[in-house]
Amino acid sequence: MSEFFSMGGYAFFVWPSYLLALVLLVGLLLTSIRAARTRAALLDRLKAERRAFES
């Protein structure tokens, strides 16, 4: 197992590459999900306000 983590002596170069990939991809995914959700919620609220205004 420790052999796996040492990556034949290249651990310092291999693991940060994969870690950065993880951080970037998960981070972008989460901010995109959040942006889609907050905008959908805001849009629903505006639509409800408009219906209340018109009736």
Binding site: A35, R39, L42, L43, E49
Partner: peptide, 23 residues
């Protein structure tokens, strides 16, 4: 996957802008 999520947000954003202008 991320493209679909972001376009969804952009379309909602455009609708929000239209609704606000109409208001």
């Amino acid at each position: 996957v991320v493209l679909i999520l972001r376009v969804r947000a952009e379309i909602a954003e455009a609708k929000i802008r239209t609704l606000r202008l109409a208001a």
